[in-house]
Structure formats: C-alpha cells, structure tokens
Design a binder for these strands. Structure first.
Length: 501
RNA sequence: GGGGCGUUAGUGAAGCGGUUAUCACGUCACCCUUUCAAGGUGAAGGCCACGGGUUCGAAUCCCGUACGCCCUACCA
C-alpha cells in the first residue's frame, strides 16, 4: 500500500510512562522496530510524559529494561540522545508552544476559557440532543475581539483548541486498512495545549513526529479515531503527514463471561516483566507476540529475530483483533528451550536453580558439569525456566521427598524388596559407572526375574528419585552417580520394601 | 447515543475471483517406549457471521443486517 516514501525510514516507539510495559505496547514497539530494521532505517524511542497526573517514575526504567531483555535496540532515545533530541516531551515544551502559537496566528486554533463544568454540561446536553459534534460547542471559537481581550487581561487560565474545519471530510491512507474517512462535522475542537502549559498527545505527537522526521507511525487501532485530527494539524502546520499503520488490538478472554475484551490484568500476565519472571525466553515471547496480529504469509511461524526482520512488512499486519493464547506461548517457549545448546540452557536455568537453593551461588566446575548433565536430561520436558527446580530437585537434594502414591504403587508391593536387592547388588559390582553399565545391570535383573521391564524399572525409579515421572531410568541413575543411587536404593529398601516379601 | 474498525474450526494465522478452504497451538487416538515429555502418523473440529447482489464462478468484489471491539477527557 502506501509503504513507500522517498525519505529514509524512521519509526518510533512513544510510550507514556504511566505504568509497566504491557504486552500490547511492546508488540507495537516490536512492529516499529522490525519495520525500521527491515528497511535499514532508524528506530527512535521517545518518552511522552505530558500527563503529569499519571506519571510513574518507575515506568521509564521498566521500559528500558523490557527493551534490553527483548533485545530491541533504538538509535535515538532519552538515555542515549541523538540528533533530534531531547527525546522526552516535558523537555520540549517550547516546540509545542511554538506550534500552538503558529496555529492560533493562522486561525487554526484558539484559546478557550470555558470551565470544565461548562464543558461537561455542554457535552452531556449535546449528546442527549444528538447535536454534532457531540463534544465541545466551540463557544470560545466565536468570541468577539472584546470578549477575547477581556479574558486575556483577566489572566484566567485557558486551553488552546484546534479549530476543526466546519465542513468537508478528512481521510488518510492506512497501511493496514486502506482509506479511512471522517466527516469533519463529527469532530469537535480538541484541546492541543492544556491549561498547565503542557501539550496533549494530539499536538505533541504530531509536532514531534514531524520534528523527528518520522516517516511511519505504527500504533494500535485505538488511535484511528484521532488520526483525522492529526492529519488536519499536519495540514494546518504545512507539514507532510507520515504513513499511518494501525494494527489491531490484542484481546483477552474474560474467564467469567467468556467475552473477548482488550487484554488486561485479569487475563493473567500482561506486563513484559512478568513473562521474564515466569521463565519465558525473550526470543520466544518476541516470536509469539509478533504473530499476534502479523503473519509473513504462508505457514511460517517459528522465526528468529533476524528472520522476523527479514520477513516483516506492513502488508502482513492484521486488521482484526487477536486473542492472546497462553498455551501456544507455552508451546513456543518449549520449542525455543529445546533449541538451546547445553551451555545456553545452563546459563539460562542456573539462576532459577540457585534461587531455589538447589545449587550454590558459586558452583565449582564439577557442580556445573553435573548441572549440565541434569539439564540435558530434562531439556525436552521444560516449557518454562521456572519449572526447572521442580523437575530436577531430586538430582540435588540429599533428602528425597518420596511421592506417597508412587511409593504405595511400586515399593509397597511384594516383589519390590527382591527387585531392589538385585538391582543394588548388581550396581555394587559394577566397576565402570557409565550409562551402558547401568543399563546392562538393570536389564540383567529384568531378564533373571523373567518379568516385563516396567516391573523392575518403575520400583527402581521411585526408589532412586522418589517419583514416577522423569527422564529415562538409565540416564537418571547414571547422572545421579553410584554413591547417591546406592544410598537411595538401600534407604528405600529398608524403609518401604523391607516387610514386603 | 454518535463515529470508526472488524467478523476464516476453541485459539493464532494462510488465502487477494476457480483449492476436496491450508498451517500451527489445543483436544482425541495410535506408533515409539521404562514413566513423563519430545518425536512420528492420523482423527475430530468450518454451511469462511447472516442476507442480498456483481460474476460462468465469491471466503475473496459491492450493499445491507447482526454481533464484537475501539474512540467519544485539559489520558495516552
């Protein structure tokens, strides 16, 4: 569609620091980043802190750390500077003031002294009577010179409103939806400068996108209704508008009603940091959220960051909202976990094992080698990093927590004592403790007793690991090591199987 | 209420005028197998929201209806 411009591509992510970075925000950021990188352009980070009431000082740092975690880099931004700085709107007030003055001078904007109360009343009345536009009645737009002067001299606070043309229509070419048209008579005169001297999004966004030479504005669907206002402002200011692309929203399903609504906290994790905490890999999350509202065409789903950059285009953006599917994310995380090399896996998982107290803070090379072996056995079972401790604790704990049901089923049975005795004596005589040797011993017991493999394997697993599920028995025994295995088997034999025969 | 945007299996997507409507997650079954996973094979699941057009032919183009969502702030 209208992806082409003659200028070098520049996109931006312009969050307002009012809370923690949300999956939805990050997805939009990702699209902007991908588009810039795909075209070899620049990606700008701009902080829109014009709402002083909702300002949250922690939000800014959280935003940076989310970007770091996901590996999204920006070429210009508040903390790194750049040729179009500053990149924080509260430090750019004079630009907005200037633009507002220019609009007032050219008759495209005007000062408004109406009280909030009056505005609220007017709005309600007009809506009830269905008078278009529904909002502000443009009272101050029609002020006489005298009235205006009186207000000016009184020094009373005022806002600046944009003077929407009374007739005609405004349209723009949306890169994902095609032509979108609004009748000007449906638009009321929106505030562009607040009484505290700060601009609203409606002005600051336009001014900065222009001043920062942004060529493509990618932002979510909720901005479509204000885009005609922006287009009108670009025109009034004599500027060329950027290409707009409005991908759809990310939705969640309400657990109670089953209805689909904008993704929010009640659907579970919505903040990027929560996914980090829950043991998701950034590359998996990135891949997953890219697919929430975008597809490269065809059946392609698993894509690295580099592949996403290569394949991304605005044409692949979806115009219909998508529901966040946590199960699919889990699956995808598992895929990425399985693709990790041993070294990467250890690096990723180790902190979780340490946090759970299974591994010390300064592991020796020997301990690290053991951890590596353990994780190699569990890698294909891992869906998130946080599951690792629960899956592997029996490899590290001295005191095994035996699963009661497993004990009842496999150790408190008549044959258990005999099985364990045979396995124990077999392993005791094993000179070389390796995978093949362990398997040979256990298979030998199975053969000598003339039973199905499970009859020996299951009791042995429960005795050695305390549970019925886990890696293959031979691998588990081998990695656990001779001493630990024999101690556990003897203990289980004494404790649970001694009275069995 | 008004304006805008949307609607392909439970979920995410592919499809861009001619396909038995494709893929992935999930579900189920079977295979592999010492359990659980992973992997493999297969199945169930869609009158492409509905109704009208246009066309030799429509999930694809047009109109209408229904439903959903977004906006309707001196928030972004």
């Amino acid at each position: 569609m209208s992806e082409a411009t003659n200028r070098p591509v520049r996109t931006r992510f312009a969050p307002s620091p009012t809370g923690l970075p949300h999956i939805g925000n990050i997805r939009t950021a990702l699209y902007s980043w991908l588009f810039a990188r795909h075209h070899g352009g620049q990606f700008v980070f701009r902080l829109e802190d014009t709402d002083r009431e909702r300002y949250d000082s922690q939000a800014e740092e959280a935003l940076y750390s989310a970007f770091r975690w996901l590996g999204l880099d920006y070429d210009e931004g508040p903390n790194i500077g750049g040729p179009y700085g500053p990149y924080v709107q509260s430090e750019r007030l004079h630009h907005y003031r200037e633009a507002a003055d220019r609009l007032i001078a050219s008759g495209h904007a005007y000062k408004c002294w109406c009280s909030r109360e009056r505005i609220a009343e007017v709005r309600e009345a007009r809506q009830k009577a269905n008078i278009h536009p529904h909002g502000y009645d443009r009272h101050c737009r029609g002020l006489s010179e005298d009235e205006r002067r009186r207000h000016e001299e009184s020094g009373a606070p005022y806002v600046v409103r944009f003077a929407i043309p009374l007739e005609g229509e405004t349209s723009f070419e949306d890169a994902v939806r095609g032509r979108v048209t609004y009748q000007n008579r449906e638009l009321d005169d929106h505030v562009i400068l607040k009484s505290d001297g700060f601009p609203t999004y409606q002005l600051a966004n336009v001014v900065d996108d222009h001043l920062m030479a942004i060529t493509h504005v990618i932002r979510s669907e909720e901005w479509i209704p204000s885009t005609p206002r922006h287009v009108l402002e670009y025109q009034a200011l004599g500027w060329e508008p950027p290409v707009f692309a409005h991908p759809s929203l990310i939705m969640g399903r309400d657990p109670k009603s089953g209805k689909v609504v904008k993704l929010s906290k009640r659907h579970g994790a919505v903040f990027v940091g929560e996914y980090a905490d829950q043991g998701f890999l950034p590359e998996a999350l990135l891949n997953f959220i890219a697919l929430l509202g975008w597809a490269p065409g065809g059946d392609r789903e698993l894509m690295s960051r580099e592949e996403l950059v290569e394949l991304f285009s605005l044409g692949g953006l979806s115009s219909s909202p998508s529901v966040f599917d946590y199960d699919k994310l889990l699956w995808m995380n598992g895929v990425y976990l399985r693709q990790l090399s041993r070294e990467e896996l250890v690096e990723r998982v180790l902190p979780y094992l340490q946090q759970a107290g299974l591994v010390g803070q300064e592991p020796t090379d020997e301990e690290l080698a053991y951890v590596t072996q353990v994780l190699a056995l569990e890698q294909e079972r891992l869906k998130t990093l946080t599951e690792a401790p629960a899956l592997t604790d029996f490899f590290f704990q001295e005191e095994l927590a035996y699963d009661e049901a497993a004990v009842n089923k496999w150790l408190r049975r008549p044959s258990a004592a005999g099985v364990l005795d045979e396995v124990i004596s077999g392993l005791e005589t094993l000179t070389d403790w390796n995978l093949e040797g362990v398997e040979r011993v256990v298979r030998g017991v199975i053969e000598s007793r003339g039973v199905k493999p499970g009859e020996v394997i299951h009791p042995t697993r429960v005795a050695a690991t305390g549970r019925t599920v886990g890696p293959g028995l031979f691998e588990a025994l081998w990695v656990l090591g001779r001493e630990r295995v024999l101690r556990r088997l003897r203990h289980a034999r004494e404790t649970y199987a001694s009275t069995g025969e």
